[in-house]
């Protein structure tokens, strides 16, 4: 028990948790702003299509358009505060609540968007952790503290949640299809159904799907690989090269989903979902150093030309 607790609460640098705050919050901020027209559109959906789920079960009818837009705007402002670490103790939990509400509201118009679950869960973890003790507005007048347990457990929890969502997906396949799911026919039919549905609904289907559908053995290989990646996700908790190998395979799985069904899971595709497994502060620190040297060179040039 002590060994498990020691591993779960292993001290980590404040910058590592701060890097996660910036990456996850930055992803959420970009996600909301680049999809602003889509999110705004829910203000004008017909009430007949509203089927509340999760936290939106509090509602009996859709929100008034102005209220939905106000929540969207507040969430975007809070996302910026979350990334910058401004009054984090207050803004981070508020951001987590607003994002949870907004993403659930979006899923209440047809079906849950499985592309967004992990983002909502990771933001909740970060909001409950001291993720603004470094690289934040709140920490601007103090040096980053030494590694502590308080910065370690949120990383472990985020990594565990990433693994758990994959395991749940693997278990669902076995519960609904049994071991027959590994034979590939389920997956082949799924790819055919998904692409045909897109064609019928006037959307872009995958150009790769139709030629590959004629080779059933390929789908058997892909089905076995999918189950191995999903059910084997907990091995990534070992960290290091094992985590890297698993993350690469999981990422490859999502690339395959894009190629075969044109379904984009942006959070894992840009690696933010896998960032808790790694020393995420290193690439961010490198970017920071490059930006500082670029700025210093610019200022140096301006100062020289002014003289």
């Amino acid at each position: 028990m002590n060994a498990v607790l020691g591993w779960w609460f292993r001290p980590a640098p404040a910058e590592r948790l701060a890097a996660l705050r910036i990456l996850v919050g930055g992803f959420a901020l970009l996600y909301l702003t680049t999809r602003l027209p889509l999110f705004l559109g829910y203000a004008h959906f017909p009430a007949r299509d509203f089927v509340p789920l999760g936290v939106t079960r509090l509602l009996e009818a859709p929100l008034a358009p102005g209220t939905h837009v106000a929540i969207l705007v507040v969430t975007i402002v809070l996302a910026a505060a979350f990334v910058a670490g401004v009054f984090y103790r207050f803004t981070a939990p508020l951001f987590a609540l607003c994002l949870l509400w907004l993403l659930t509201y979006r899923s209440s118009w047809s079906m849950p968007f499985h592309t967004e679950n992990l983002l909502a869960l990771h933001v909740i973890v970060l909001a409950l952790a001291p993720a603004a003790d470094a690289w934040a507005f709140d920490a601007r007048r103090r040096d980053a503290p030494s590694p502590r347990e308080a910065y370690g457990w949120p990383l472990k929890l985020m990594a565990a949640l990433t693994c758990l969502t994959y395991v749940l997906a693997g278990i669902a396949k076995l519960r609904l299809g049994g071991m027959a799911w590994a034979e590939g026919e389920f997956l082949r039919d799924q790819v055919a159904v998904d692409n045909l549905r897109k064609v019928l609904l006037g959307a872009d289907a995958s150009p790769l799907a139709t030629p590959l559908l004629e080779h059933p053995w390929l789908f058997e290989v892909m089905a076995i690989a999918t189950l191995a990646i999903e059910l084997g996700a907990p091995i990534a908790m070992a960290g290091g090269r094992v985590a890297l190998a698993w993350a690469l395979m999981a990422w490859g799985f999502h690339v395959g989903v894009v190629a075969l069904m044109a379904i984009v899971f942006p959070y894992p595709l840009v690696w933010v979902a896998y960032a808790p497994f790694f020393a995420a502060e290193r690439p961010l620190a490198w970017v920071g150093r490059k930006l500082r040297s670029l700025t210093a060179r610019r200022w140096g040039r301006h100062a020289a030309s002014d003289m």
Binding site: A120, L168, L200
Partner: peptide, 22 residues
């Protein structure tokens, strides 16, 4: 299935004959 607590049933269903009746 719900959000964000999901059973993650995507790609798990049997689709006999890849039939699409919509």
């Amino acid at each position: 299935d719900s959000f964000p607590l999901s059973t993650y049933p995507m790609f798990a269903f049997k689709r006999p004959g890849a039939r699409v009746a919509i």
